[in-house]
């Protein structure tokens, strides 16, 4: 930037020849001393660094391969557990099928009454014509086949031996079937006190 302001010039200008002479005296000896000391430190640091890297690498790969075996084992376990879960849920849906429910209900002495009658709560009116159940379905063999059920007995006949088929690792849950309700005077009723 150019301006036309008046300035006071510094009264003293250092001599250009003074500084270089002083520096030239200092160069050789201290620089050499400085260079010697770091050589050992650097070497040690570098060696230590390399050693640390090697050790870390070793530990890491040991860790990773350890993990790999663990993952492999767990993966195998997961597959097995997945199979168990699949097999058990298949059993469940199979047993929930209408054929299975119907034959179980019949074995408990239940009959279906398809004659619909309603009691209206607001005025106590009976809608429909009540009549007793004929149990027309009772005793009739299932006419709707389900080949998945061929080997499964009615639930009340299943003993706990055929149930606890849980996976070897898991705790076996002992299932005790509810004993059949004793039949007294025609209708099954639990003995209450």
């Amino acid at each position: 930037m150019s301006d036309n302001l008046a300035r006071v010039r510094p009264s003293f200008t250092p001599s250009p020849s003074a500084a270089p002479t002083e520096r030239r005296l200092e160069i050789v000896a201290p620089a050499a001393a400085h260079r010697k000391r770091p050589r050992i430190t650097y070497a040690l640091t570098a060696t230590a660094g390399v050693a640390a890297i090697v050790i870390a690498q070793l530990l890491l790969s040991v860790g990773i391969s350890q993990g790999a075996y663990e993952i492999s084992t767990l993966r195998g376990e997961q597959v097995e557990l997945g199979r168990t879960s699949e097999s058990v849920s298949q059993d469940l849906v199979r047993l929930s099928s209408p054929q299975s429910l119907a034959s179980n209900a019949e074995s408990l002495g239940m009959v279906s009454n398809s004659n619909p009658v309603y009691l209206r709560l607001s005025d106590g009116a009976v809608l429909g014509a009540p009549s007793s159940a004929l149990g027309s379905q009772g005793g009739a063999a299932s006419l709707v086949p389900n080949s998945l059920l061929t080997d499964s007995a009615v639930l009340t006949q299943i003993d706990d031996a055929s149930l606890g088929t849980a996976d070897g690792g898991a705790a076996t849950v002992a299932v005790t079937p509810t004993p059949a309700v004793p039949i007294k005077s025609g209708l099954p009723s639990p003995a209450t006190r």
Binding site: Q90, R94, S96, S97, P98, Q99, P145, N146, L148
Partner: peptide, 8 residues
């Protein structure tokens, strides 16, 4: 494939 309800 599995058909849990059989012929239903």
């Amino acid at each position: 494939r599995v058909y849990p309800n059989g012929a239903v």
